[in-house]
Amino acid sequence: MSWARIMAPLSGGQGDRDAVAAAVMLAEPFGAEVAGVYTPADVADVMPWMGEGFLGGVQTTALESLKEAAQAGEKNARAAMDACAYGKKQFIALTTPVWAGLSAESRLSDVVVFGSDPARGRGPLAEAFQQMVADEQRPVLIAREGLTVGGCVAVAWDGGKEASRAARLALPLLEKARRVVILAAPKASSRSFDAARLQAYYGARGVDAELEVLPESGDAAPALVKAAAAVEAEILVAGAFGHPRLQEFIFGGTTRSLLNSDRPSLFLSH
């Protein structure tokens, strides 16, 4: 298996260069294209808030300010892409309707890369992160300090739908890894499962995975983070749990704890 297109949403802010660098790191072993997608605030989302008569002086000034900010952001995002020496790259600047464009780009990408802030609900790309995970159900990589491809990857496993989707979609990453460790915490799950089944699944696909059963009960997230650190995993693969409510993605406790941890980098799928 392989990946052909890695997408990095860009905000025109300081985190863009790190996001591009992480996308390149993920793409390079596969010779994949990196798509830097500038995702500005959408004027169409602001206009209903302005109400009738939005063409008045104050409203017109506000719209012009938004347009100027979008232009400046695009310039910064483009500069972040230009500073990257990776040859197989593409820059895309979205225009209204921004969210429809972002969805379309993600559907033609294998993985979407974010930094830590959007995953924690911070900054201009926080809503984009929620859209990618909850609405589009795209696999995302949350890039953190220490990210490498080809080292150790840990896979959180509980036999559920979300975990199985993440475990399958991460196969190209696992095929490049030096070491793969399946982390299972059966005492922390209400679900009955046999972690050796995933180990056999990987073995049939040429991935020699180790299996570690964690003794902890209660909240699985701290145990998973601790175990991932113990095996020196650079990336933890996990299912994202939650449900849409009022167009907002409400993450479950385990997922929220993983998002708020500092390391390792996360490969998530809902």
Score class of each variant (00 low, 15 high):
residue 155 V to Q: 05
residue 132 M to V: 04
residue 160 G to F: 07
residue 134 A to C: 14
residue 51 G to R: 09
residue 41 A to L: 13
residue 122 R to G: 02
residue 52 E to L: 10
residue 153 V to C: 11
residue 46 V to Q: 08
residue 63 L to R: 13
residue 59 Q to P: 08
residue 163 A to C: 14
residue 63 L to G: 02
residue 112 V to Y: 06
residue 84 C to E: 15
residue 112 V to P: 02
residue 157 W to C: 00
residue 90 Q to D: 09
residue 65 S to R: 14
residue 49 W to T: 08
residue 47 M to Q: 12
residue 69 A to Y: 05
residue 146 G to F: 10
residue 102 L to W: 12
residue 127 E to N: 12
residue 41 A to C: 05
residue 46 V to N: 00
residue 50 M to Q: 09
residue 55 L to S: 02
residue 166 A to H: 05
residue 164 S to W: 01
residue 162 E to H: 13
residue 87 G to D: 14
residue 148 T to M: 14
residue 134 A to V: 02
residue 148 T to C: 13
residue 50 M to P: 04
residue 41 A to N: 06
residue 115 G to V: 04
residue 59 Q to A: 13
residue 139 P to Y: 05
residue 114 F to T: 00
residue 151 G to H: 10
residue 137 Q to F: 05
residue 58 V to R: 14
residue 93 A to R: 01
residue 64 E to S: 15
residue 133 V to G: 01
residue 114 F to A: 08
residue 149 V to W: 06
residue 62 A to M: 14
residue 40 P to Y: 09
residue 52 E to Y: 12
residue 77 A to R: 01
residue 84 C to L: 02
residue 171 L to Y: 04
residue 165 R to E: 01
residue 168 R to V: 07
residue 157 W to F: 14
residue 93 A to E: 05
residue 146 G to P: 12
residue 88 K to M: 06
residue 165 R to M: 07
residue 45 D to F: 13
residue 71 Q to S: 13
residue 119 A to K: 03
residue 157 W to I: 02
residue 137 Q to L: 06
residue 101 G to H: 09
residue 51 G to N: 12
residue 110 D to S: 04
residue 45 D to W: 15
residue 120 R to T: 01
residue 102 L to E: 07
residue 169 L to M: 12
residue 83 A to D: 11
residue 67 K to L: 10
residue 99 W to I: 01
residue 55 L to P: 02
residue 67 K to E: 13
residue 50 M to L: 15
residue 161 K to N: 10
residue 63 L to H: 05
residue 60 T to V: 02
residue 109 S to I: 04
residue 161 K to T: 11
residue 163 A to Y: 02
residue 56 G to K: 04
residue 169 L to C: 09
residue 113 V to P: 08
residue 94 L to N: 13
residue 144 R to Y: 07
residue 130 Q to I: 00
residue 44 A to E: 11
residue 133 V to P: 02
residue 139 P to E: 01
residue 149 V to H: 11
residue 76 N to H: 13
residue 164 S to T: 12
residue 103 S to D: 15
residue 97 P to E: 08
residue 121 G to W: 09
residue 163 A to K: 03
residue 144 R to G: 04
residue 110 D to A: 07
residue 145 E to F: 09
residue 115 G to I: 01
residue 172 P to E: 10
residue 129 F to N: 03
residue 46 V to P: 03
residue 171 L to K: 11
residue 51 G to I: 03
residue 100 A to C: 10
residue 141 L to P: 09
residue 121 G to S: 08
residue 119 A to I: 01
residue 86 Y to G: 02
residue 163 A to F: 11
residue 163 A to I: 00
residue 149 V to F: 11
residue 108 L to W: 14
residue 159 G to L: 11
residue 53 G to L: 10
residue 104 A to S: 15
residue 90 Q to P: 00
residue 71 Q to E: 15
residue 97 P to V: 03
residue 51 G to F: 11
residue 54 F to Y: 14
residue 148 T to E: 15
residue 137 Q to C: 10
residue 161 K to W: 09
residue 153 V to Q: 06
residue 77 A to N: 00
residue 89 K to E: 06
residue 110 D to T: 06
residue 157 W to K: 06
residue 65 S to E: 12
residue 54 F to E: 04
residue 122 R to M: 05
residue 71 Q to F: 00
residue 131 Q to W: 04
residue 146 G to Y: 10
residue 84 C to H: 03
residue 115 G to M: 04
residue 64 E to P: 01
residue 141 L to A: 03
residue 51 G to Q: 12
residue 95 T to P: 06
residue 144 R to P: 13
residue 57 G to H: 11
residue 166 A to V: 03
residue 72 A to I: 00
residue 103 S to E: 15
